[in-house]
């Protein structure tokens, strides 16, 4: 039984520590227990995982087959997204989808007033996000806010295409699919640096 193994392991570690150094605190015993082994996890089957393995990676890993056009995306956007992102993807209350990454925008002198009402508008998906795959990932897992995970893969491709179109990253007659999405060059990519020393 796995539970008995864990318990025996626990007792053995604790007893040997007590014998060696009586004054050691429990916390110190745990911290030193690098040889501690546990086995209470159950095997995760591929079928159990498949419903939940939704993360899309920049290299295309986990991208489903499918396709959607800018035109289809525009239609979907007006019905399901516009009430939170505005007509052009740059109004509130939700995050800004297109435009510059700051609140000082030459094309919108009233930006600073809008920011006062909706502060999350001050950075945009189009300017900061380094990979189009992340737009697909987040739209599929979290959007629309009132019904997350309700869009099918073709609808998510279409909405991703429309967001890219709003940012002048796709022409209006384009159909986006699992191959084409990997060719999109996002402006945020070349500006990116990593503060984490193990990843550059």
């Amino acid at each position: 039984m796995s539970s008995h193994r864990l318990y025996r392991c626990f007792v053995k570690n604790t007893l040997s520590s007590l014998l060696l150094v009586v004054a050691l605190s429990q916390a110190a015993t745990y911290a030193d227990a690098a040889d501690f082994s546990t086995d209470l996890g159950e095997t995760l089957s591929a079928s159990e995982l498949s419903d939940y393995e939704i993360t899309i990676f920049p290299n295309g890993k986990n991208l489903p087959e499918g396709k959607g056009s800018v035109i289809q995306g525009e239609k979907l956007y007006k019905g399901r997204c516009m009430m939170c992102h505005g007509e052009e993807g740059d109004e509130g209350p939700a995050a800004r989808l297109k435009g510059s990454d700051g609140w000082i925008s030459f094309s919108d002198p009233l930006r600073i007033l809008r920011i006062n009402k909706y502060p999350v508008l001050l950075i945009s998906v189009g300017s900061l996000w380094p990979y189009a795959t992340s737009i697909f990932d987040y739209t599929r897992r979290a959007m629309p806010h009132y019904a997350p995970k309700s869009l099918n893969d073709d609808e998510v491709y279409a909405l991703t295409a429309y967001i890219l179109y709003l940012n002048d990253l796709l022409e209006k007659d384009v159909v986006l699919d699992e191959k084409r999405i990997l060719n999109i060059q996002m402006p945020g990519k070349n500006r990116s640096i990593s503060a984490w020393p193990e990843f550059k």
């Binding site: 999350v120 950075i123 998906v125 900061l128 990932d137 987040y138 640096i193 503060a195």
Partner: peptide, 19 residues
């Protein structure tokens, strides 16, 4: 994975425009 928050809101924009 460059998830939503590490792609946008939880990054810092430096003085030289780098993200």
């Amino acid at each position: 994975a460059f998830t939503k928050d590490e792609s946008g809101l939880y990054s810092d924009i430096l003085d030289d425009g780098k993200i």
